[in-house]
């Protein structure tokens, strides 16, 4: 147990520190790079928690997200001024964080304990490996048992990409007659 918990805590502390730096630093470029650190830490945690599919996807997704954000940030001047009166007081932040931690402690004692999931449906999916022919049970759940879900998610991706096209079109826009 300890051989999983120690790296897990270390990686999650790394992610938390990187997230705080990403939110609080002034320079937008370093902020974006710290966000990339959070994503790669998440990929390592996925690898640690026996989710290789997620680790593979997370690494590439994080690369593309960081490239997108860098392209948006670089060469655009940032005139945002963060004044001190906008940021909340340290005591207030401490109180809120304390309240969140206490509430999480109380709530998560009702949840299933870590490393002992219920697996009511997962057990059945694992045992039906011969039904689908897929050896990777994640793919079996994704594309066979819960394929309707995947169809819906494909629709969401399609809608988001079409939204990008609609926002960035150059033809047919008022005041742009080229």
């Amino acid at each position: 147990m300890a051989e999983v918990l120690l790296p897990l805590y270390a990686l999650m502390a790394f992610m938390l520190i990187a997230a705080i730096i990403a939110v609080e630093t002034r320079d937008l470029l370093s902020s974006v790079l710290c966000l990339g650190a959070v994503g790669f830490g998440l990929a390592l945690v996925d690898l640690l928690l026996k989710a290789p599919d997620l680790a593979l996807t997370q690494v590439v997704v994080e690369i593309i997200a960081v490239v997108l954000l860098i392209r948006a940030v670089v060469a655009r001047e940032d005139t945002t001024e963060e004044s001190l009166s906008d940021t909340p007081h340290v005591a207030f932040v401490g109180m809120v964080v304390g309240a969140i931690v206490i509430a999480a402690f109380v709530c998560f004692q009702q949840l299933v304990p870590f490393a002992k999931p219920l697996m009511t449906m997962g057990e059945a999916y694992l045992r039906s490996g011969e039904l689908t022919g897929a050896k990777n049970q994640v793919t079996a759940v994704l594309l066979d048992f819960r394929a309707y879900d995947t169809l819906g998610e494909a629709t969401v991706i399609f809608a988001a990409i079409i939204g990008c096209y609609a926002l960035l079109r150059t033809r047919g826009r008022i005041g742009n007659r080229r």
Binding site: P52, D53, A55, L56, T57, V60, V61, I63, I64, G133, A134, K135, N136, V138, T139, A140, L142, L143
Partner: peptide, 16 residues
């Protein structure tokens, strides 16, 4: 269907 990966991961790699 045999090893880690699949349509989503492979598609993102193609996009990259």
């Amino acid at each position: 269907h045999l090893s880690p990966g699949g349509g989503f991961a492979g598609g993102v790699i193609l996009a990259a």
